[in-house]
Each structure stands twice: as C-alpha cells, then as structure tokens.
Simulated assay, not measured.
Amino acid sequence: MAAPGGKLDTLPQGQYRCALPGDAAGAAWIPLEDRNFTIGNGSTYRTHQGSGTYLLTGTRVTFTRGPLKGLKFERTGSDSLRWIDDKGEPGRVRCVRSGFAR
C-alpha cells in the first residue's frame, strides 16, 4: 500500500545549488547561497547553518527539521527541484544537484 501523497523515497546524495532565473539582459541565474544544501545518508541534509531531515513523498519534498524546516519543493527531475510557495504554487527558485556529498 502506498503512503498518502505517493511512494516514500530519498533524494540522490550530493550538493544542491539553488538559484532564481535571470533575464536576457544579465546573468542566466541568480545564486541563492542561503538556500543551498547537501543531501546525506537517508533523509538527512545539511547547510552552513546546521543539519536536518526531509521527507520525499511522491514528487513532493518537505524539509521537516533543521534550518530549512517548512520549505517545500516539487521534484522536477532526478537531480532538480522547484520551490513551492506557502499557497502551494510553484515558485521561481530552482535547486539542482551540482556535485557529490563530501
């Protein structure tokens, strides 16, 4: 029997870099250093502010503890996430796995 919201899973381990899309007149992406995180073993992550846990159900990622607690993302590919705002709408922030965890 599947969990409500979809199958439980974990994200690929590695460093996730988050950014806003830029525009044609400037940079392609605007980095958001305060949103970057590294996925570790199991459902754990860490940032420069500390560590925490997340839950991946179907394609929805919810940070449940730690510095990113309350942030939600939609998994849009094997290595990419799109921020979901407080109203449940897709936001402009994207996070992409850019390297392996150290």
Rank of each mutant, 00 (worst) to 15 (best):
A27F: 15
F63G: 03
S98E: 14
T64L: 03
E74H: 13
F100C: 02
C18N: 04
R46T: 13
Q13H: 02
F73G: 02
A27S: 15
V93F: 01
T59D: 15
A28V: 13
T76M: 08
P4G: 11
R92M: 12
D85T: 05
S98D: 10
V61T: 08
P4E: 08
G14I: 03
L8D: 12
Q15V: 11
A3R: 14
S78T: 14
Q49Y: 11
K72F: 01
Y16E: 08
Q49F: 05
K7M: 09
Y54D: 01
D85E: 03
Q13N: 12
P12M: 01
G91I: 09
G26M: 05
D9F: 04
A101I: 01
R17N: 08
A25N: 11
T53E: 08
F37C: 01
N41Q: 15
G77A: 13
N36H: 05
R60Q: 13
D34F: 01
K87Q: 14
I84R: 10
C18W: 01
T76D: 04
E33D: 14
G26W: 10
T62E: 15
G22V: 06
A28T: 12
R60G: 00
V61M: 05
A3M: 14
I39S: 03
T76G: 04
R82L: 07
T57Q: 14
R17T: 14
T38L: 00
R35W: 12
G70C: 10
G70M: 12
Q49V: 02
T44D: 07
D85I: 09
K72V: 11
A28Q: 13
G52Y: 08
I84G: 07
L8C: 00
G99S: 09
G77K: 04
S80Y: 08
W29E: 13
V93M: 14
I84A: 04
C95A: 07
T57C: 05
L71V: 02
D34A: 14
R102V: 06
G6E: 08
Q15C: 06
G42S: 09
T76A: 06
L81Y: 04
F100D: 15
D79W: 00
R17L: 10
M1P: 02
